[in-house]
Amino acid sequence: MRAVAGHALPADALGEDGISEQVAAFERWSRGFEPVAELDHPYIWSDELVYGPPDPRPGWQAQLDGLDLEARRRHGAGFVELPVGHRAELLREHLERAVPAGLRELPFAAEAPHVAIALLAWWAGTSGANDLCHGAAIGRHECRGLPSAAQRPEPLAPPSRADRGER
């Protein structure tokens, strides 16, 4: 998963440690997933209830296993051991096959057609990703108090080399 994340997530912006943190958080999210949960019925116009998808994790594991198996058959080494360029190429091939051409927006992570897209969709929905995009501490999902609402969000401090996992 960590090797996939290095290509699916913005590795330069997040840094090595950031990628590992996001993978760990995604795995925590995955463990907390409840299959076929009752979803929020919107505030208006919902005379029927809607339920979420079944557990996607067995499928995701199969996709990771498939990546690794194909890496071994093509290159004689597991996915993790491949050179970065080969990994990126192989992952992209898998995604081009798995992701329908008509899927243009990021899906709900649990309904993603591939585990790499699930990770990406999950990350893109976080407060941290929104902050990173806009370079500001917006804290979209935080309970932040009223007074600061009127202020322009503080700019994010650029990540230090240590934050990026560099020596």
């Binding site: 699916a8 913005p10 081009e96 899927l103 927006e105 990021l106 897209i117 990406l120 893109a124």
Partner: peptide, 19 residues
């Protein structure tokens, strides 16, 4: 303005390209 999976020309966006 939401992050998206494909560019206007349909290319899959990952990682730094998406950001």
């Amino acid at each position: 303005r939401r992050p998206r999976l494909r560019s206007d020309d349909g290319e899959l966006l990952l990682g730094e390209d998406l950001l």
